[in-house]
Design a protein around this nucleic acid. Structure first.
Lengths: 242, 242
DNA sequence: CGTTAATTTGAGACCATTCAATTTCGGTGG
DNA sequence: CCACCGAAATTGAATGGTCTCAAATTAACG
């Protein structure tokens, strides 16, 4: 099944958390989808959209954001391969925020109706989907804490810790280097800071020997110190032990 | 059925959004529960808990919060009657944050197993539950924006707008007065500000004739101006038209 | 009516912002 | 291969919104 294999990473990730039967796995791999590539900053979902499709990241990254009336932007989360971008739009009537591709990315576009059918028929699959949206919500909660109560240094450190733990969970290992094409302006919009202050804060983290970051390549030099700086506790990510 | 009637407000709220059959409604009203009262600031859920129960607010308010290692607190959401506090804890293994009662409140404590059974058997009920958690997630996203990219005045105004719209949705009408027993310190922890600055900001909103707030009683004096000040658009609350 | 919690006020300090200018980097075409 | 270009990163200096720390006042409660 050479074609179906695009969904295998998703099946693998869900299998770790929920007990999927062979039938569940086959049904997932049999989902109809088309592949679609997006360029840097291309919109995948727009606020107000009523879409009939859900996007699963096969390659590359994406980010959620909302725009304020004055043009300011707040990034709400980043997403990595094997993650659904808009599973919630299958059930809510209308998209309440935007999703953009972070870099050159490839999505599996799955008809919403096929996902709903599958969820109705297969309790284990439904559970995996629901848990995914619940973990997303948990991440949002932690982000409220991050931008609400941490200083600049801790916000940046925490963001990096989260991304690293999530990347490790899909097999991108160790302390890097990670291919992370996030600009400082995007990090600023994710942490509620300005690009200028983000720059100075990153320099401070580098100067102190916690991270190395340039040209879209991130390496962790002192993981414990980084977690400490970011007040990071990965419980909220609800990862399964490997 | 005098006893079952405690769950009727929930059934009414869900009926507006999802097409519940008579059987669904009866099954919901037949859910086993015990009533439990909580005093001000009593913990309902603690981070790390593995509970077998879910709490539905019958009377009073509750709030979610996370504590930082330095003792700072971030409030992540407020909750009003007819809302579940910890539906997500039915599926996630472990609570990743705390929930406290805001004032004297009363909860319906429902065994998690009964809710899961009901969800498995009744698609419409399951949908209502899922949508509830998705709307929660949408609110978290908006809060990230609020604390991340708005100034103090807009944060406070936005918080008030949200609470008012949600209170209206459960029938507490108009422009108040609303019985809202939130302290300024709690508003501060919800908006990522200090209590002192929250106080000054509230004074400014009062001085400008947007709101009236004292002794736990809130009135809206100029709704349009308040929405404007808070950059408020209620789309993210996904309310049904009344 | 006493006691504690909550609100309010003031002044100074600081973290992050703003605004501009400069440098570096990645990609493109001559 | 180098010149060029726009985007991204970096630097500096001044400004400002919010915080900190205390103290005073008011409200809530038994």
């Amino acid at each position: 099944m050479p074609e179906s294999s695009h969904l295998e990473p998703l099946v693998r990730r869900w299998s770790k958390r929920c007990n999927l039967s062979d039938g569940d796995r086959e049904a997932l791999l049999a989902l109809p989808y088309t592949r679609k590539t997006y360029g840097k900053d291309n919109y995948v979902v727009r606020e107000g959209d009523r879409t009939g499709e859900c996007n699963l990241i096969l390659r590359g990254f994406a980010y959620r954001q909302k725009l304020l009336s004055d043009g300011d932007r707040q990034i709400i989360s980043f997403h990595i391969p094997t993650e659904f971008i808009d599973l919630q739009n299958g059930l809510l009537e209308m998209a309440d925020h935007n999703v953009q591709s972070l870099n050159q990315s490839e999505m599996a576009v799955i008809p919403r109706s096929a996902l709903i059918e599958l969820a109705d028929e297969r309790p284990a699959v439904r559970l995996a989907m629901w848990v995914d949206t619940l973990v997303d919500a948990s991440i949002f909660r932690e982000w409220v804490v991050n931008v609400g109560r941490r200083d600049a240094r801790a916000r940046i450190a925490h963001l990096i810790c989260e991304l690293v733990v999530r990347l490790r969970s899909i097999g991108v290992g160790g302390n890097g280097p990670f291919d992370l094409p996030i600009t400082q302006e995007q990090m600023a919009d994710a942490t509620g800071l300005t690009a200028v202050h983000t720059n100075r804060t990153l320099q401070s983290l580098r100067r102190d020997g916690l991270i190395q970051l340039n040209g879209g390549s991130l390496s962790i030099l002192d993981w414990d110190a980084l977690c400490e700086a970011g007040d990071f506790d990965e419980l909220y990510l609800h990862q399964q032990p490997m």
